[in-house]
Nucleic acid binder design. Structure first.
Lengths: 211, 211
DNA sequence: TAGATTGTTAATCGATTAACAATC
DNA sequence: TAGATTGTTAATCGATTAACAATC
């Protein structure tokens, strides 16, 4: 059952709280109030409190939350405590950068292999991790029990790659291609569409120029 | 005046429409209905129609919209027709990839220079574009009339870099650092927080595992 | 105790969806 | 004409915010 107990909005705010809490200086770290978090992140304090109520056992009036417990609660809730293995398809510019980036481990993500069709990159290693031929995708995902696929191929190839991932048993897809992917209901697609961000930026500037 | 005539949601859907319209095969391209767009992108058709009403002069009943005009209208509305020059701060993994990526020109974005403190990259060129020392940021932005800054430095340095950008006259910031930036009211920050996406993915999988 | 903070219940706001009228 | 499609007005839904009570 896909119980949608928590809104996507809340879900996306949780990592912001996490980042903020982790960055707190040690001498100010023991306790933290929802009010302070809200102020620091430019959010409403009731909203923060509601979000925290979902994942935490609660804080103490006048004191706030125990920061370290709150960090643990968020990480556990999001599943950052247990590593998720992922594969990335497309070892071009962006794919290469994501594959080489080590910081995802903090979020429980471990990109264990890259796949590509380009014979000039297949067989090479990036940060000690292999770039493999796309033919081996399905068997690799099954044998390694991979459930996350990252798509960094051009838009025209994205749906095809997506289908391959699904038949490889992938349950969650992080899609960097600027295209809407069609997937079965049980598979989640999270789009990282940079064009959407650019639209907001571009429009803002256009408005500024007209003023 | 920051007239918020259009919701961010609408603004972020426009590039999706644009991508879809541009990818239409030539023989099916002349006219397009809101219903078709909605179906292809998994959206509600009334919503699509409302979005299109904002940027277009309207379609014809029974026929739909003239695809090419619609494309022009969206591009013009978003300001993709006039190029925006941008600088990127931080030529590490991700910064390097974004700097080297040529596809942003499609969205009216032109990253003209990268800045970094690391002496091993300063002075090099990437795709024929210079990586410059951070000291020159302000004078460069002013002389080249740059209004967009892209932040791809580590979180601890992001606010500092952000302040430098603002005093360099930047009006819109595309922030890849997982931290909340404090900016004056007239500056727009668009966060590309990958941690937020990962949270959604990770939670989805955790839920799946419990089933 | 007084007051900062939590947590809850009700009100507001905005976006999405549904129903319907207009039109080519 | 009939019907596909546009465009609008009203209803619904969900998230945010405001007001208030509870508590340490």
């Amino acid at each position: 059952m896909g119980l949608r107990a928590v809104s996507t909005q809340t879900l996306q705010r949780l990592p912001m709280y996490l980042n903020y809490l982790k960055a707190l200086p040690e001498n100010k770290k023991l306790n933290i109030s929802a009010t302070m978090i809200a102020e620091a992140l430019g959010l409403n304090h009731v909203q923060v409190r509601k979000d925290l109520a979902i994942i935490s056992k609660g804080g103490k009036p006048k004191v706030g939350y125990v920061t370290d417990l709150l960090i643990d609660d968020i990480e556990q809730y999001l599943g950052y405590d247990s590593a998720n293995s992922a594969v990335i398809i497309g070892a071009g510019n962006l794919g290469h950068a994501l594959f080489a980036f080590t910081g995802f481990s903090e979020y429980g993500l471990d990109i264990v292999a890259a796949f590509d069709t380009d014979e000039s990159v297949v067989g090479t290693t990036i940060n000690g991790k292999m770039v493999l031929p796309i033919d081996g995708l399905s068997s690799f995902c099954h044998s390694e029990n991979i459930k996350i696929g990252i798509i960094t191929v051009p838009a025209q190839k994205a749906q095809e790659v997506c289908n391959m991932l699904i038949s490889s048993g992938i349950l969650a897809i992080w899609n960097f291609a600027p295209i809407h992917l069609v997937v079965p209901e049980n598979v989640l697609v999270q789009n990282e569409n940079m064009a959407c961000s650019l639209a907001v930026l571009s429009k803002h500037l256009k408005q500024k120029n007209r003023e």
